[in-house]
Each structure stands twice: as structure tokens, then as C-alpha cells.
Design a binder for these strands. Structure first.
Lengths: 222, 222
DNA sequence: ATGGAATGTGAGCGATAGCTTATATTCTTG
DNA sequence: CAAGAATATAAGCTATCGCTCACATTCCAT
């Protein structure tokens, strides 16, 4: 009897039953991404692992892309919670404590589901709906900028936007790369050393006296 | 049924004619990657764009993966040349000049073929032969470590390996991210400001007095 | 209890992927 | 030139992909 626009999947699941199906599909997608990689994550395989028929899959997700996007969104929300909580805690803290909070949060965030994080970062093509994977960073940048603005008198930086960009990019890259390529520096007592080093890096930058500007010409335009 | 490559393709081309074919294939692969993205880069399409038959393609490249790997290798070699030249120039320079050299080299390197660089970084799955995309960073890390060791007395860092890791990761992430998400900061006079800022970041870190260690406990293991 | 809405099913379609192979053409070398 | 080695061609094979559709089952309000 269904001769309506079949191309459009149902937007929301009203019954509890369907919510279970949706969850199973997202979970299965995540599992396959982690265990077998992006290109092994075919829709048929996802449906099979979820214990659901392909037909049902396409009732709730209009495309494979939408499925992966859902996984990304779920993961992103988890990360975001950690980051926001830390930044909220840091608002009232002095500079160094706030920075340590930020770095700790970045490390914790990368610990949520490292394998999934890697797959999302390394294998998922950033095209179409999947291109805004970096939403978390963007949000962190804005929050950090606010913090820097509130503590303007403690730091020697004028371009706060640029500073926020530099710091968020740096801290994220360092923790990310540590998780990926140097897991040793995040285990045991080495973790504290790592945090110390990164804190020094950030703190040294922020506390640079404002007059430390040199009209050098090294960059070559192209 | 996943069949292994049974037919070994010819390793080296003896005639000049075949070298042209190989070059055309690599070039076509790069062009398609840039203009249409990774998953549009089918072997049939690559062969067509190269003006070569698929049969010839498989004479020289055992798989699509091998083709992409060749593109990566070519790009990597170009980057590597820029980085190594800069680091060679920097060996004899004092700290700040050397750092500016390094940062300038990173920016220049990212300017070689930014579109291709982005595609390789964002869309190419890091599996199989394609997982050592980061060979350049590894090499840069070693070279920088040597430099730091030679200038040990000018800096306040003890763990030179960790420092090299941090610096290379940071500079690469910043230039990479700037190219990708903030191309504005690399144009015109802003470029100089960007170099200044990153230089401050790096310099402030390296020149931190050695006693600036705090036995803090912020990191949370999981 | 019953009818319609919500949900679930899976065979199978069309497209395209990576790749093989039989054959044709060009080069090199005696 | 002859002949074999090197190189080039493209039709087409097999596999798999994302996805549809006709239908079955379950839920819920009446």
C-alpha cells in the first residue's frame, strides 16, 4: 500500500521498537568502522551485523553517508561534552590551571573511543554531509577565544582569534598524534610529563611580552 | 573471494615509451584525485584520462592502491626536498633563524600542491601500502632532533625526542590547518604575522628554563 | 477484534568497481 | 628483414556496491 514518496525515509521513530533498530544500526556501523575499516562498511554488512534487514536500514537512513554521519555525530557529542565541561570548569581558573584543564580534557576526549576516532580521522572521506567532522574544534575555538578575552590582561597576545586558532589546533594535533603514533607518552608517569611539556608550550606563548614583534621577512609568497 | 595479485606487473620500464605511459598514469591519478576526489578515481577513469588502456595500467601498477601510492610517493618526495633543504640551511643558523627557516619550509611545502595535499590528507584511506603517508614527518623529526642536540646548550629541554615530536607535530598541524581552514592567514602581510606567532610559540617553548617543572597531577589515566 | 499505521523483510536490480586475458601493435636486435 | 620481446589495447568477467520494492509482521487506537 505504500505508494507514497518512498525515497524519503521516516524522519523520527515513534515506537520504542524502531529506536532500538536505529541504535543497533549506529552501533553496528561504529563497530564495523573500528574493526574492519571504512570501505568494508557496506550497508548490507552493517544491516547484517545490526541484525536488521537492509530495508529497515533504509527506512531510517537515506544513505550510507547518513549512517556514517550519525556515528560521527554521536562520537562528536561525546567529545563535545568532555571539552565543554572542562572549559566551563576552567572559566574561573587562573591561566595555568585553565590550560592544564584544557589539555587534560583534550587527552580525555581522545580516550573516549580512540580506535573509532582514528578511523573517523583517517579513513572517512570528508565530502558531502561528512565534511564537518571538525565541528568540535570550531566550537572549542570559540569558547577558548571567550576565555582569552576575559583574561586579556594576563596574556601578551593581541590577535585573540589567531591565538585561539593556534592553541586549539596545536593541542588537538598533539594529543591526536600522541594517541595515534606515540601511545607510550600517554601512559603512566609519562603522561604527566607530556602535559607539563604542552603546558609549557602554550603558557610560554600566551605570556610572551607584547613587544616581542619582529618585522622579519622569511615567508615566501607563492 | 579476495584474490591476491597473481600477475606480477613489470617492475621497471626499459623503453622510453613505457616511462611516458607510467608518468601519464601517475599524473592522471593526481589530477583526478584533485578534481574529483578519491572515490571517483576508478582505475578505468584514470586510464581514460591518461589516454592509456586499462590493460597498460595493470602492466605497471598491480592495483589501484599501488597507483595512489605512487602519487603519494611523488608528492612526498617533493615535500621532503623542501624540508631537507631548509633544515640543511638551518644547521648553521642560530636558534630563532633556524626556527623561522623550519616554519617557512613547512609553509612552502604545503604550497607545493595544496589541493592534492588536502585530498591525500583527507580522503585517502590509510590502509595497506597507503598507511605510511606520514613518512615526511618522521624524517623531519629525526633531522630536527639532531639539530636540537647540536644546540643543546641554547635550550632548556631535556627530552629531545619528545621536543622534536612536539615541535614537528605542532608546526605541521598549524601550517596544514592554516592551508585547509584559514587560507587568509597565509596571504599578504598576515603571513608574516602568522610566522611570527608560530615562531614565538616554538621559541618560548624551547627557551623555557629547565627548572620550570612542576609535579602536578592533572592527567587522568583511563 | 479489527483496520490502518508503523515497522520489518530480503530477493534482486542497475551500476560500477577492480581486474584478466586474448590479441594487436611497436620496438630492438640479429 | 625476421622474429621475439616489450608494450598497448579493450572487451568483458566476477564481485560487490548502494539501494528499491512488493510484501509480511507488529503495534495501537477504536
Amino acid at each position: 500500500m505504500a505508494r507514497k514518496p518512498q525515497t524519503r525515509p521516516r524522519k523520527s521513530a515513534s515506537q520504542q521498537r524502531s529506536q532500538i533498530t536505529v541504535d543497533a544500526l549506529i552501533e553496528a556501523t561504529a563497530r564495523i568502522l573500528v574493526r574492519e575499516g571504512y570501505d568494508k562498511a557496506s550497508t548490507n554488512r552493517i544491516a547484517a551485523v545490526a541484525g536488521v534487514s537492509i530495508g529497515s536500514l533504509y527506512q531510517y537512513f537515506p544513505s550510507k553517508e547518513a549512517l556514517v554521519a550519525a556515528v560521527i555525530e554521536r562520537h562528536t557529542r561525546q567529545l563535545s561534552d568532555v571539552i565543554q565541561a572542562a572549559l566551563a570548569r576552567a572559566v574561573a581558573s587562573p591561566l595555568e590551571a585553565a590550560i592544564r584543564e584544557l589539555i587534560g580534557a583534550a587527552i580525555d576526549a581522545h580516550g573516549i573511543d580512540p580506535k573509532l576516532h582514528c578511523v573517523l580521522a583517517e579513513q572517512v572521506p570528508r565530502v558531502g554531509r561528512l565534511e564537518n567532522i571538525n565541528a568540535v574544534e570550531k566550537q572549542a575555538r570559540l569558547l577558548l577565544r571567550d576565555y582569552l578575552e576575559a583574561h586579556r590582561d594576563e596574556i601578551g597576545i593581541t590577535d585573540l582569534d589567531l591565538a585561539a586558532f593556534i592553541l586549539v589546533t596545536t593541542v588537538e594535533a598533539l594529543t591526536h598524534s600522541a594517541v595515534l603514533h606515540r601511545p607510550d607518552v600517554l601512559t603512566g608517569e609519562k603522561a604527566a610529563e607530556f602535559v607539563d611539556e604542552v603546558t609549557q608550550l602554550v603558557l610560554g606563548y600566551l605570556q610572551t611580552p607584547p613587544r616581542a614583534r619582529k618585522p622579519n621577512k622569511v615567508s615566501r609568497a607563492r
